[in-house]
Amino acid sequence: MPDAHPHPEPSPAHPRPEPFLARTAPEALHDLRARLRATRWPDAPEDAGWSLGTDLAYLRELVTYWAEEFDWPAQEAALARLPRFRVPVGGLGIHYVHARAVAPTGPVLPLVLSHGWPDSFWRYSKVVPLLTDPGAHGADPADAFDVVVPDMPGYGYSDRPTGAPLDSIAVAGLWAELMDVLGYERFGAAGGDVGSHVSRYLALDHPDRVVAVHRTDAGVPRFFGDPAELAPEEHAWLEGGAAWGAAEGAYAAMHRTKPQTAAFGLTDSPAGLAAWIVEKLRSWSDCGGDIERSYTKDEILTNVTLYWLTETIGSSMRMYHANAAIAPAQLSRRVEVPSGFSIFPGDLVRPPRAWLHRVANAVRVTEPERGGHFAPFEEPELYARELRAFFRPYRAAAAS
Rank of each mutant, 00 (worst) to 15 (best):
Q330I: 01
L166I: 03
A103I: 00
C287R: 01
L79N: 14
D3R: 03
H373T: 09
W244A: 14
F341W: 02
H255D: 07
S342Y: 06
R364T: 06
R353T: 15
R81P: 08
A22H: 14
W122A: 13
L273R: 05
T267I: 05
N303W: 01
V304S: 03
A253V: 14
P107N: 03
L306D: 13
V335E: 11
A354K: 02
F377I: 02
W122G: 08
M317D: 09
A22S: 11
D298E: 14
P17S: 06
L306A: 05
V148I: 15
P338W: 01
R282M: 12
M317T: 12
A172D: 10
Y394F: 15
A176Q: 11
K258L: 12
A275R: 05
P17E: 09
S332R: 15
R385I: 00
A263W: 00
A139H: 09
V213E: 13
G191Q: 03
L356T: 11
D167Q: 04
T132A: 01
A329Y: 04
G340K: 09
Y394A: 06
F341M: 02
V304N: 07
H98G: 07
L309K: 00
E311W: 03
D159C: 02
M317G: 14
R222D: 13
G245A: 14
G93M: 05
Y96L: 13
D347V: 05
V128K: 08
K258S: 14
A74T: 10
F70Y: 11
W175L: 10
Y295T: 00
H115Y: 06
H98T: 07
P227D: 12
F224T: 10
A275H: 11
A246M: 12
I277T: 03
S158C: 06
M317I: 03
G265P: 07
R35W: 02
D71S: 11
R392W: 01
L111P: 14
R318Y: 04
P45C: 00
A322D: 04
L130M: 07
P88Y: 04
A228P: 08
F121P: 08
Y184E: 11
L36C: 09
A99T: 08
L238S: 12
S158V: 05
L82H: 15
Y58Q: 15
A34N: 13
P12H: 05
G289H: 04
P165E: 02
S316K: 00
R222G: 12
P153D: 09
S316W: 05
D151H: 04
W276A: 12
L174Q: 12
P19F: 01
T64S: 15
E27H: 06
F85M: 03
P153Q: 02
L202Q: 14
P368K: 01
H7M: 09
D31E: 15
C287L: 07
D347I: 06
Y320F: 13
A252M: 14
V147F: 11
T302K: 01
A170H: 05
P376M: 00
S315E: 11
P393S: 06
T310L: 01
V363N: 04
A103P: 08
R350D: 11
P376D: 07
L32E: 10
W276K: 00
R395S: 08
A57M: 01
